[in-house]
Design a protein around this nucleic acid. Structure first.
Lengths: 211, 211
DNA sequence: TATTTAATGAACGTCAACGTTTAGTTTTTC
DNA sequence: GAAAAACTAAACGTTGACGTTCATTAAATA
């Protein structure tokens, strides 16, 4: 019912592992561009350079394919959040580094498209939505909160609720750009703009939370 | 091609104005729940207590109906942003009032659903997206920026860029709750939670921007 | 009353997409 | 070489939704 099946070598032609990747990749981008309903299996197959039947042999149906795509993106999201961002420099520098890597991820056009598509499509799949949130935004907030607690125990900043502080900082970093990107009012941020946003957010945050 | 037609009284049975409202209302909620593709005209008609043909007589096709719905929501959004929020009390109180009315609007379940659906459906309608952004988020930011400039000229706060400051404040107010609502991880905020969020945001903002 | 327009329900034509079947080809193991 | 499984292309059946047509009834004006 899910994805892979074979583990030990058996008789017969083995599955081409490249096809799995091609299908999921093609499906992801087609879902991103069109949403679940408007994305057709035929289009996904053609884009992946694969027969339609191959998709149905590996994934039961369109719904299952979508779930697999979301699952892999969830893992990818989780991995991106785990990417240890720098623990060098003073607090401001470490926060800037965290913010930069976060915004580079969030503002990448793939992620913007994902952020347009997922909430709508997951609206009636609460479990998948919860998993995705936990792996992505939730985990990101936790990691930032840990970093801030560390800084508090070093007496560099002060607050009562570390999760609250982390939310504030992330909100300051994102600002309005996420909304502008989501509606397509703004296309992309240059590295300079992005860095400037992060530094601004960090500065405001430290001004409010610094001891 | 659009909506209304008649203005002076003519021969024949007049259109029932209640039906227009019923159709648009039904269409709005059906689009919110299911998105453009999964929302069927038959369902919208049934929900509005109206014949399918009546919809096709008033709106050319599904696309036109959708555009009309978005247009009316855009107007509604613009009106909500214009709702003059209190100009009494000290700065913190005025900002709190602004933030409260904003969050009440943003966190209402209707708006959350709209915010899930619209970005995806407008992804390939840049003009509608721009109009909606200008009428909603854009106008909100402008009004808040004006309020902040006023406070700056009263030497209560200081900043270089009023739009930037407005973005910061709005971001602090929203925090993470918008994401949690969008993914359905959190259901709704009580009035107390909402007030607390606003006061927290305002406090952090003033701590960073106060003279 | 005659005319004109709105509205309805039911039936219809059309089309696009899902998912299946079939026959045949390729690639592997035994 | 035989058996087994993956893969493909093409055709097919089915369904669901769009949008239309038609006959009929309702509500207005002249």
């Amino acid at each position: 019912m899910a994805g892979e099946k074979r583990t030990t070598s058996r008789a017969g032609r083995p599955r081409d592992p490249a096809k799995h990747e091609a299908i999921v990749h093609s499906a992801l981008h087609t879902f991103l561009e069109r949403g679940f309903n408007a994305a057709t299996i035929e289009h996904i197959a053609a884009r992946a350079g694969v027969s339609k039947v191959t998709i149905y042999n590996r994934f039961t149906d369109k719904e299952t394919l979508f779930e697999q795509v979301v699952k892999e993106q969830t893992d990818h999201f989780a991995a991106a959040m785990m990417d240890d961002s720098i623990s060098r420099g003073d607090l401001a520098a470490r926060l800037d580094a965290f913010g930069c890597s976060l915004l580079h991820f969030l503002f990448a056009s793939d992620h913007v498209a994902l952020d347009r598509m997922l909430p709508q499509e997951l609206a009636h799949h609460p479990q998948m939505a919860q998993r995705f949130f936990d792996a992505g935004p939730g985990q990101c907030r936790s990691r930032l909160a840990e970093m801030l607690e560390q800084a508090r125990s070093d007496r560099q900043i002060d607050f009562e609720d570390s999760l609250q502080a982390a939310e504030d900082l992330m909100a300051l970093w994102k600002g309005f750009a996420d909304v502008e990107l989501k509606f397509g009012v703004r296309q992309r941020l240059s590295d300079e703009e992005l860095d400037a946003k992060v530094r601004h957010g960090t500065r405001i945050f430290l001004r409010a939370y610094g001891v």
